[in-house]
Simulated assay, not measured.
Amino acid sequence: MGTLLVALQFGLLIMLAALAAPNVLHGDIPAGALMMAGISVALIAWALIHNRPGNFNIYPEPKFRGVLVTTGPYRWIRHPMYTSLLLGAAALAWTCNTFIGWGTWSMLAIVLFMKSTLEEQGMRKQHPGYAAYTLRSKRFLPWLF
């Protein structure tokens, strides 16, 4: 199931990039979309600074010797990498500004929700403190979701 979700994630991201490409090539990128893309990149960088190399995985299974990270953006968000993907993908959907683009973004959000659910099952098994961590953090959006 994890491999299928990763394949869907990348396929949907490629589709969004292809849909936005004509507008990007013509320099027709809304200022809000640029700002959203910048926030996405900043969040990825912040998450990578706090996560150890080799500790994260594109598949929704925790690494065998992985360490539970609860600092930086992980203090408030359990899946900041997924949040940054959703922000970057929203910037692409906004740039292409079509029903197909926003539909693709919605499908990506569902895939990432499913992927995070699968990942959290594994994290609960591997890290005894994970259940308590879920009570003081949110899945994607601080203080909301």
Rank of each mutant, 00 (worst) to 15 (best):
M1H: 01
T3S: 05
T3L: 04
L5F: 13
L5V: 12
V6D: 00
G11D: 10
G11S: 07
A18V: 03
A20F: 04
P22K: 00
P22A: 00
L25P: 05
H26M: 15
D28T: 14
A33Q: 03
A33M: 00
M36L: 14
I39T: 00
I39R: 06
A42S: 14
I44P: 06
A45L: 15
W46E: 04
A47L: 12
I49S: 01
I49F: 06
H50V: 11
R52Q: 12
G54L: 07
N55F: 09
N57A: 02
I58G: 14
F64V: 03
R65W: 09
G66L: 13
V67I: 11
V69N: 03
T70K: 00
T71P: 00
G72E: 15
Y74N: 04
Y74L: 12
W76K: 13
W76P: 14
I77R: 10
H79T: 06
P80Y: 13
M81L: 15
G88F: 08
G88W: 07
A91H: 08
A93Y: 03
W94T: 08
N97I: 07
F99G: 10
F99S: 07
G101Q: 14
W102R: 08
T104K: 03
M107H: 02
L108F: 06
L108M: 11
V111Q: 01
S116V: 09
S116N: 10
T117P: 15
E119G: 01
E120T: 06
E120L: 02
A132Q: 14
A132C: 10
A132F: 02
T134N: 06
L135I: 13
R136G: 03
R136E: 00
S137L: 03
K138D: 11
P142Y: 08
L144I: 09
